[in-house]
Design a protein around this nucleic acid. Sequence first.
DNA 1: TATATGCGCAACTAATTGGTTTCACAAATT
DNA 2: AATTTGTGAAACCAATTAGTTGCGCATATA
Lengths: 108, 108
Amino acid sequence: MRRDIFQAIADPTRRAIITIIALQAMTPNAIAENFNTSRQAVSKHLRILTECDIVKQEQQGREIYYTLDIEKMKEIDIWLDQFRQIWETRFNQLDDVLSKLKNEKNEK
Amino acid sequence: MRRDIFQAIADPTRRAIITIIALQAMTPNAIAENFNTSRQAVSKHLRILTECDIVKQEQQGREIYYTLDIEKMKEIDIWLDQFRQIWETRFNQLDDVLSKLKNEKNEK
DNA sequence: TATATGCGCAACTAATTGGTTTCACAAATT
DNA sequence: AATTTGTGAAACCAATTAGTTGCGCATATA
C-alpha cells in the first residue's frame, strides 16, 4: 500500500480531518461530530494518516488526542517548487515583454 | 469517481508524468519511453489527468501532444495556505522568544 | 495499395479503497 | 460491582484503481 503525504491528502474526508487537527488536538469522537462521518470511519482515516506518518497522538485516560504534524505538509510545498520555478519564469517573461514595450515606446 | 487535482497527484506514475509534461509537450509514446510503463498505461493516466482538467492536448497528424496546465497546480498551493499561516505564526512565536531573550540579556 | 505506426478504448484482473457492522477491552461513572 | 463511554481492530462489501491484453481506426510510409 502506498503510504505517503500525497495519498494522505487524496481523500476529501481526510483533507477535512487534516484541516481540523492542524489547529487543535482532537479525539476521534470529536472529529466525527464535526462532519457527517461515523466514529469508525474517522478512526480508519486516522490509522491511514498515522501510517502516512503525518499525525501525532497523545493518550489521556481513555481518550486519544490526535494532532497534525504540520511540518510534514512542507513535503507537498517542496514538490510544488518545480512549478513555482516555471510560474516565476513566465512572470519574468511577462516582465520582459513589458519592459520591451516600454523601450519601444521610449524609442518613438 | 473523484476527479480533482488531489486525485491527479495521488499516484506516483502520474506525478512523474506531470513533472515531464510541465516542461514540454509530449506524446504518450514519448512519455512511456521515459520510464518503465506501457504506452497504454500512460494513455490511461493521461485520460485521468484530462478528466481532472489539468492537461491540454494538441493533435499533430496522428500524434497527440500533451502539456500540463501549470496554473492548475496553484490550487494545491492555495490549499497549503492554511498551514503556511501556522508555519508563520510559529516562526513569529520563535521570533518573540528570541527578542525576549535579547531583552533579558540587555536588562542584566 | 499494402504495411507500419500512433493512438484511444473496451474488457479483464488483482489489489486497494472507503465505508459499515460487530466485537473486545480499558477507563470512567453509577 | 454493574454500566456507560471511548477506542482500535477485524470481517465484510461495493466501488475504484492501476495495470494488462487485444482490438479498431486514422495517419504516415513503403
